[in-house]
């Protein structure tokens, strides 16, 4: 797989892609199926102005090295200019040949890409380390003592109950 030249564009336009969902109409209303955890299909248009001949030839070479519209490649993060729209290891494809404008000394260029493998929608809850906070004095109408109040549960086996909770009610 090739990598696109590290040439940040002067401007870029893009959409946010889509989840891979299909919809089937039934008599009871439409039913939707999600076929993967990925968001892909983002259309990305990069616009360059005032490129030098060396720079425009980098993109020409990459286009042909990539077998024109056929192959897939990766995009350096610098091209996104710090935006975090797709994953860094996403795969891209040219949707049409780059359009060049020759203005004399410099070149303007428009490149149209599509994202084939974008973000994976997978959320992981990470609670971090369960550190017991420092004890501090605590008073309320219902409980008196030192916080935190920790309930230590055990295995759900009625024959080996190892925790007994005593509620010591006092004068209300």
């Amino acid at each position: 797989m090739t990598t696109y030249p590290t040439l940040p564009p002067q401007s870029a336009s893009f959409d946010y892609g889509k989840l891979n969902v299909s919809e089937v109409n039934t008599l009871g209303g439409p039913i939707r199926f999600r076929h993967s955890d990925r968001v892909s299909g983002n259309a990305l248009k990069l616009q360059y102005q005032g490129l030098t001949q060396t720079q425009v030839e980098q993109i020409r070479s990459h286009y042909f090295e990539n077998q024109t519209l056929h192959g897939y490649f990766q995009l350096p993060t610098a091209v996104w200019g710090g935006l975090s729209v797709v994953a860094n290891d996403a795969r891209y494809r040219y949707t049409e040949p780059p359009q060049e404008e020759h203005t004399g000394l410099h070149y303007n260029l428009t490149v149209s890409l599509i994202v084939i493998d974008g973000f994976t929608v997978l959320y992981i809850l990470d609670g971090g380390d369960a550190t017991v906070p420092t004890e501090t004095a605590f008073t309320s109408f219902a409980l008196t003592g030192y916080q935190p109040f920790i309930l230590n549960g055990n295995g759900a086996d009625l024959s080996s109950i190892t925790v007994t909770h005593i509620f010591n009610g006092q004068g209300a």
Partner: peptide, 26 residues
Amino acid sequence: NARTYTPGAHPSTAIPTMNGNEMGVR
């Protein structure tokens, strides 16, 4: 005085799959 240039392309077909991936045929 001015030029525009669009490079050619291989005749190829991108066949999408349901999970968002593609299969390309040149």
